[in-house]
Simulated scan of single mutants.
Amino acid sequence: MFKSIACLVVVSVLIFSCNSSEKTEKTITVVDGKDRYDVYQGSEMANLMRGMHAFNLQLKEEVKSGKITTEFPEEFLKIHTAIFSESKSRNQTFDHYSGKFVEAQKLVFEKDSVVSLTERYNNAINLCITCHQTECTGPIPKIKKLLIK
């Protein structure tokens, strides 16, 4: 059941993130009876990264069990084109680390590797942490929880 919910969350986030074509972050107003709430709508990149986190949370459990039932999500390749929030921008450092992350994440799914599955998985997560140390450090504690100790 957890797998189904996690997959649904990942797919939902990735689908909704594909519909964002503006660079600015948005809020929408939700009316509940007489109350009005402004709800934050993240950038395409923020939504993609939330989806990556949800997917890797599920993948962590698969790696711990020693059996991967999923495949590399091609949606992750959107990391090279997704639109950032207004206050952030693509730069050489991000391009470098995002490319390395995609390579490392793909290695997790290779069946014939001599490197242990846990090590390959942690390598991919460590690349996320390393990139986030250069800018946008807020998610680091959440990302660190993805590591397998």
Rank of each mutant, 00 (worst) to 15 (best):
residue 3 K to Y: 07
residue 5 I to S: 12
residue 7 C to W: 08
residue 15 I to H: 09
residue 15 I to W: 05
residue 17 S to H: 02
residue 21 S to Q: 13
residue 24 T to Y: 13
residue 24 T to V: 13
residue 24 T to W: 10
residue 26 K to T: 10
residue 27 T to Q: 13
residue 29 T to H: 07
residue 29 T to S: 14
residue 30 V to K: 11
residue 31 V to G: 06
residue 33 G to S: 07
residue 33 G to M: 06
residue 34 K to L: 12
residue 34 K to A: 13
residue 35 D to I: 11
residue 36 R to H: 14
residue 37 Y to A: 11
residue 38 D to E: 15
residue 38 D to H: 13
residue 40 Y to K: 10
residue 43 S to E: 04
residue 48 L to S: 02
residue 49 M to W: 02
residue 50 R to V: 11
residue 50 R to T: 13
residue 52 M to F: 10
residue 55 F to N: 01
residue 57 L to G: 07
residue 58 Q to P: 00
residue 59 L to A: 06
residue 59 L to N: 07
residue 62 E to L: 03
residue 63 V to D: 01
residue 66 G to C: 05
residue 66 G to Q: 05
residue 67 K to G: 00
residue 68 I to V: 15
residue 68 I to F: 09
residue 71 E to F: 09
residue 71 E to K: 13
residue 72 F to Y: 15
residue 73 P to V: 01
residue 78 K to L: 04
residue 79 I to W: 00
residue 81 T to Q: 08
residue 83 I to F: 01
residue 83 I to Q: 05
residue 85 S to E: 13
residue 86 E to D: 14
residue 87 S to N: 14
residue 88 K to I: 04
residue 91 N to E: 03
residue 94 F to Q: 03
residue 95 D to Y: 03
residue 96 H to R: 14
residue 97 Y to G: 00
residue 99 G to I: 04
residue 102 V to Y: 05
residue 102 V to F: 03
residue 103 E to G: 07
residue 105 Q to P: 00
residue 106 K to R: 15
residue 106 K to H: 05
residue 108 V to E: 04
residue 108 V to C: 11
residue 108 V to F: 06
residue 108 V to G: 04
residue 110 E to C: 10
residue 114 V to I: 12
residue 115 V to Y: 08
residue 115 V to C: 07
residue 116 S to T: 15
residue 116 S to A: 13
residue 116 S to E: 12
residue 117 L to A: 01
residue 119 E to P: 01
residue 122 N to T: 09
residue 123 N to M: 10
residue 124 A to K: 00
residue 127 L to E: 06
residue 128 C to P: 00
residue 129 I to S: 03
residue 131 C to S: 09
residue 133 Q to H: 06
residue 133 Q to K: 15
residue 133 Q to Y: 03
